[in-house]
């Protein structure tokens, strides 16, 4: 048997072990990235193969916690993919304004930069006060960072450029203050934000949403899991609710292809055209 075939079996066994022992289900994640992270983790912990991870994972909860951290994606930035925010502001916010209250689910929010991004734009459009934002992730450590809203100052120049490209109207610095090497976001931005642990692979619907944001999460899933999660989003949305995905994600060739219509040129904001929420 070729070495890469053996390694493929090792990865499957590892994911099965994690699921059986801890209930975290990575079996339907896009394999290449999980494999890369497993290899890196094994190497960084001084182990020679992926299968050597398995006994450690089974007996050592702390070790598992470290692996989960490795597996969960926390790469994000303020106003990442600014044109999608601009489209939201131009095409979705005017409709949201017509509702007496709005519920937004930001699924897979990681360290929260994009939650603050959304909150700022909602404020500028006079929508924030009637909004509730549910910001969820399965990584508790990332959620803690999100709750604090303190980020490194290093990338602020790029983020400010993104913010302007996203159609932000006043100075971004109105929403944070800088201290040492950090920027600290205004507490008022999270007044209507509920941060909560939610795992898209295993947890269900928890509310009736007007907008679901989930950017650069689905790319980490295989087709099966993508369909499952897209159905979850579809069932969570009210009739005519909106779904906003990452710039390289699409509902084309998925289960929900016919349940949404595309409303922007970039094909990443979709409007639900069937049924009401199945909550």
């Amino acid at each position: 048997m070729k070495i890469q075939e053996i390694e493929n079996i090792e990865i499957s066994l590892l994911l099965e072990a994690i699921y059986g022992r801890y209930g975290y289900d990575f079996r339907d994640y896009a394999r290449a990235t999980v494999e890369r992270r497993s290899r890196l983790f094994a190497k960084n912990t001084g182990l020679k193969s992926i299968s050597e991870l398995i006994p450690r994972i089974m007996r050592d909860e702390m070790f598992f916690e470290r692996l989960v951290k490795e597996f969960s994606i926390t790469v994000t930035e303020l106003f990442r993919d600014p044109s999608s925010y601009k489209e939201l502001k131009l095409k979705v916010f005017p409709i949201l304004k017509t509702y007496p209250f709005i519920k937004i689910w930001h699924a897979g929010c990681a360290t929260g930069e994009e939650v603050y991004s959304l909150a700022i734009l909602l404020k500028q459009e006079g929508l924030y006060d009637k909004a509730t934002i549910y910001a969820t992730d399965f990584n508790d450590e990332a959620l803690e960072v999100a709750k604090n809203g303190i980020y490194s100052i290093d990338n602020m120049k790029q983020c400010t450029a993104n913010y302007l490209a996203a159609g932000g109207t006043d100075a971004l610095s109105d929403y944070y203050y800088a201290k040492h090497e950090s920027v600290i976001f205004d507490k008022a931005l999270r007044k209507n934000v509920m941060f909560a642990n939610h795992n898209l692979t295993t947890d269900g619907i928890f509310g009736e949403m007007h907008l679901v944001m989930c950017k650069n999460v689905l790319i980490y899933f295989n087709k099966t899991l993508q369909n499952k999660v897209l159905n979850l989003f579809c069932d969570s949305l009210i009739h005519s609710g909106y779904l906003c995905l990452g710039s390289k994600e699409s509902i084309l060739f998925t289960d929900v292809e016919n349940k949404f219509e595309n409303i922007d040129k970039g094909e990443r904001i979709f409007r639900k055209i069937t049924g009401t929420a199945n909550v």
Binding site: A30, A32, R36, V75, I219, Y220, K248
Partner: peptide, 14 residues
């Protein structure tokens, strides 16, 4: 990245 079924995966990793 390339998957074992010869499909493309994109990733947003560091």
């Amino acid at each position: 990245l390339v998957e074992r079924d010869a499909t493309i995966s994109l990733s947003n990793d560091e």
